[in-house]
Design a protein around this nucleic acid. Structure first.
Lengths: 346, 346
DNA sequence: CTGTTAGCGCGTTCAC
DNA sequence: GTGAACGCGCTAACAG
């Protein structure tokens, strides 16, 4: 169905000019006479000619799109509002640059497959443990990458927060409030990581921060309960149910706000009160409407996205001399309403 | 920097086979001898050969990506959690089909420009008034499209809710509760609409529903206040501030949940109580954690996204005989906690 | 300055 | 198993 696409040839024939002239009319009008440009554009309009973007990109060796590579299925990834916020600010920078943003989930459960076939000019990852095989493909394909909250790998430009210090602050707040029966809700380990590599992933960096805080109080990590879950509300809900049913804790420390919110709900549903019975502290500081009352560690999603995108574009446009930079976003503590000093009773 | 890309030629030379053989080794291994396949794949591995996806797509005339076309800048669009939910379920279906999802915002403020240059195999729009010029480009480019919450255009496959009836129900609830001093927060009119066209946009369909409900109570649309804002929390907040300062209303009817939530916050910040002083009813029924208490009209984001994506894929894969279908998602009323009968005092 | 000719990019596929 | 054409727009090199 539908007649064949109108090509540059058709316009050339129709006007009596060459393909080259037609191409110039669109891309460098100054290269040919005004009259020629007019005639060509007119014919193009008459025949409804649109230069095929695929052919064009192929010719020019670019796509005008950058990829947002997420480590899990998009259904999980987009369930995290913090990630969406970061993506939003990335998309905004893309728009400024006339680029589109393509979501790249693992293809057939494989990040490598996805990266092999993605038609983009560069990639921003978030929360991805960059295994060597992925980096290799990027290199082969000459694709630039910027990593957000990724591995602390020196040869990959990255944007992140000082996870260890931020986590230390987070745990210290809880300890300062007198809590000792503490549960931590961690995030998934690098699902696709290669055991041979010794780069350190976000969860480990934060765990280190927890240890540091605990040791200031002469406590061990082993004295607290650690569970792990996806960065979604419902996972946080379930995680908190687990925690509640496995003992009596006075504080929950979550590596993610959305998880903390899920936990909060679960606690309320169990008939417990926050912060009277259980204190909660999150991590992210979503600028979100619903989470203003959550005590948390704030790191700007907007800054992260913007910095990463700008960095990527300056690499793509060759404006960047240094091969790899690591930028750090500041963090801060937000008091919120989900923290309370533990009652001295034991 | 970086050596030239390894191409299919290099593998051909290296192995002594032809380009054709190499191509077959990757795409139809059964087409050549097992031995040949082995040798070729081995050489490919040694040389780190990855078939260039751009060239491949160009050759095959496809992209393995579909586009999500939003009428506003992504920074605005992604600020609406309901839209993100829809996108999430679209992305999930894409993944199942091995496709990626590309976000298409207006390029240089032009939807037409964006649609001209998007390298995708099909498009799903949401809340977009489909002007003729856009439809024309899609046709020229042979791009299939499915519209969510779009214009009621018969020749475009679409998924939506019965907006008129849903809005009527929404307004009727408010009226049943005795409210008469009512403010409506509407959504942006079709920013890119062509005045000559007579297709009806979502806001108008809903407005019709409001009229119908009002007339059952012998009221006119002119008797209520109508303001308009973007589908974001902060816009909703501002809209409610306007409403509050412009008179005394007992109920706010919003065309979007996120807007309703913003309004709710604004009302609280003004020292008024919900629902004691002001009732609020939203529209969307976000499955979201934070909005369970909002009284609203529920329409499943997941269904919308899934149905639209499945429809698009069946069109792309040529499984769809009928040229255009319009699917309807059911809606329902959720009581919530933001409605209260108005006190008889006047 | 205006316009053309002749490839090029890279993988796919028809016809032998 | 192969040679050659093909898709479509871009552009270096060249001629008037």
């Amino acid at each position: 169905m539908g007649k064949k696409r109108v090509t540059i040839q058709d316009i050339a024939k129709r006007t009596g000019y060459s393909k080259t002239a037609v191409s110039f009319a669109f891309n460098s009008p100054s290269r040919i006479s005004k009259k020629a440009v007019e005639k060509i554009l007119e014919a193009a309009k008459e025949l409804d000619y649109i230069p095929d973007p695929t052919a064009r990109n192929f010719s020019l060796g670019r796509h005008m799109a950058i990829g947002f590579l997420v480590p899990q299925s998009t259904a999980v990834a987009l369930a995290n509002p913090y990630l969406v916020s970061v993506m939003r600010s990335i998309a905004a920078i893309c728009e400024e640059n006339g680029y589109m943003l393509t979501l790249i989930p693992p293809l057939h459960s494989s990040v490598t497959e996805a990266v092999k076939s993605a038609t983009v000019d560069g990639i921003i990852t978030m929360g991805l443990y960059m295994e060597r095989s992925v980096v290799d493909i990027l290199r082969r394909r000459n694709l630039s990458i910027v990593s957000i909250d990724g591995t602390n790998d020196e040869d990959i430009p990255s944007v992140s927060v000082d996870d260890r210090a931020a986590a230390e602050l987070q745990m210290r707040k809880i300890l300062e409030y007198g809590h000792r029966r503490i549960a931590v809700i961690s995030l998934p380990q690098a699902a696709y990581s290669d055991q041979n590599e010794r780069r350190i992933y976000l969860t480990e960096r934060r765990m280190k921060g927890y240890c540091d805080a605990l040791s200031q109080y002469s406590l061990q990590l082993s004295s607290i309960k650690v569970v792990q879950c996806n960065a979604t509300f419902s996972s946080g809900y379930k995680a908190a149910e687990d925690i509640i049913s496995s003992g009596s804790f006075t504080a929950i420390v979550s590596m993610s706000d959305i998880v903390a919110l899920g936990a909060w709900r679960a606690i309320r549903d169990k008939g417990l009160r926050v912060p009277d019975d259980v204190s909660i502290i999150g991590f992210d500081g979503m600028d979100d409407y619903s989470s203003k009352e959550l005590s948390t560690i704030v790191q700007s999603a907007d800054d992260k996205g913007r910095m990463a995108a700008n960095m990527l574009f300056s690499i793509i446009n060759g404006e960047d001399a240094e091969p790899a930079r690591s930028l750090c976003v500041p963090f801060s503590f937000r008091e919120g309403k989900t923290l309370r000093a533990v009652l001295k009773k034991d």
